[in-house]
Computed example of a mutant assay.
Amino acid sequence: MIDWTPLADLIEKHDRFLLTTHIRPDGDALGSEVGMAGLLRQKGKDVRVVNTSQTPPRYDYLDPDGTFFEHFRAIDPATLADREVLVILDLSAWSQLGDMADFVRAFPGPRVVVDHHVSQDDLGAIFLKDTTAEAAGTLVMRAVKALGGSFTKEVATGLFTAISMDTGWFRHPNTKPSTLIAASELIESGAEIDRIYRDLFERGTLGRLRLTGEFLSKMKTDLGGRVAYSTVTRDDLHRTGSIPPDTEDLVDYTVSLRGVEMGILLMELEKGGVKGSLRSRAGADCAKIAAEFGGGGHKAAAGLSIDAPLEVAVERVLAAVRKALDPA
Rank of each mutant, 00 (worst) to 15 (best):
residue 131 T to P: 11
residue 212 T to C: 11
residue 247 T to D: 04
residue 255 V to H: 04
residue 107 F to G: 02
residue 37 A to Q: 00
residue 150 S to C: 09
residue 134 E to G: 14
residue 200 L to V: 12
residue 71 H to P: 06
residue 26 D to W: 04
residue 243 I to E: 14
residue 246 D to V: 04
residue 48 R to C: 05
residue 227 V to P: 00
residue 127 F to K: 08
residue 37 A to Y: 01
residue 26 D to P: 06
residue 223 L to S: 11
residue 236 D to K: 12
residue 33 E to D: 13
residue 253 Y to V: 04
residue 281 R to D: 00
residue 35 G to E: 08
residue 127 F to P: 01
residue 206 L to T: 11
residue 311 E to P: 00
residue 73 R to Q: 14
residue 214 E to H: 06
residue 258 R to W: 07
residue 181 I to F: 14
residue 133 A to F: 08
residue 217 S to Q: 13
residue 163 I to C: 04
residue 314 V to I: 05
residue 317 V to C: 04
residue 181 I to H: 15
residue 308 A to G: 07
residue 287 A to S: 13
residue 104 V to Q: 02
residue 316 R to C: 12
residue 6 P to D: 06
residue 119 S to A: 15
residue 63 D to M: 06
residue 319 A to F: 13
residue 115 D to F: 03
residue 309 P to Q: 11
residue 130 D to W: 06
residue 14 H to P: 07
residue 264 I to S: 04
residue 328 A to C: 08
residue 254 T to L: 01
residue 163 I to F: 06
residue 16 R to V: 13
residue 117 H to L: 11
residue 325 L to F: 09
residue 34 V to A: 10
residue 153 K to T: 15
residue 56 P to F: 14
residue 155 V to N: 08
residue 199 D to H: 15
residue 14 H to L: 07
residue 144 V to P: 02
residue 141 M to K: 11
residue 53 S to E: 08
residue 162 A to R: 03
residue 49 V to D: 04
residue 159 L to W: 09
residue 255 V to F: 07
residue 86 L to W: 14
residue 51 N to Q: 09
residue 117 H to Q: 12
residue 249 D to R: 05
residue 271 K to F: 13
residue 305 S to Y: 09
residue 6 P to M: 13
residue 48 R to H: 09
residue 103 F to C: 03
residue 43 K to P: 13
residue 173 P to L: 12
residue 54 Q to V: 12
residue 307 D to I: 04
residue 35 G to T: 03
residue 228 A to M: 15
residue 78 A to W: 09
residue 323 K to M: 03
residue 292 E to T: 11
residue 118 V to Y: 15
residue 81 A to V: 05
residue 120 Q to N: 12
residue 290 A to F: 04
residue 205 T to L: 10
residue 147 L to R: 06
residue 101 A to E: 09
residue 189 S to L: 10
residue 294 G to W: 03
residue 281 R to V: 05
residue 46 D to G: 13
residue 42 Q to T: 14
residue 59 Y to I: 12
residue 107 F to W: 04
residue 239 R to Y: 08
residue 274 V to N: 01
residue 172 H to P: 05
residue 298 H to K: 01
residue 250 L to Y: 07
residue 248 E to L: 06
residue 214 E to Y: 05
residue 132 T to D: 14
residue 81 A to C: 05
residue 42 Q to L: 11
residue 314 V to L: 02
residue 139 L to Y: 15
residue 103 F to M: 10
residue 159 L to V: 12
residue 88 I to A: 00
residue 80 L to Q: 13
residue 68 F to I: 05
residue 232 V to Y: 00
residue 62 L to V: 12
residue 197 Y to K: 15
residue 47 V to D: 07
residue 218 K to E: 02
residue 237 L to W: 13
residue 155 V to R: 06
residue 116 H to F: 12
residue 108 P to E: 02
residue 179 T to Q: 03
residue 192 E to S: 15
residue 105 R to P: 04
residue 84 E to G: 07
residue 134 E to C: 15
residue 293 F to A: 00
residue 226 R to F: 10
residue 144 V to F: 14
residue 8 A to H: 14
residue 309 P to W: 10
residue 52 T to W: 07
residue 92 S to M: 01
residue 105 R to E: 11
residue 143 A to C: 11
residue 234 R to G: 05
residue 21 T to R: 09
residue 228 A to G: 10
residue 186 L to H: 05
residue 200 L to S: 13
residue 125 A to T: 11
residue 11 I to K: 03
residue 218 K to H: 02
residue 100 M to V: 09
residue 215 F to S: 02
residue 51 N to A: 08
residue 88 I to K: 01
residue 179 T to V: 06
residue 328 A to Q: 12
residue 183 A to S: 11
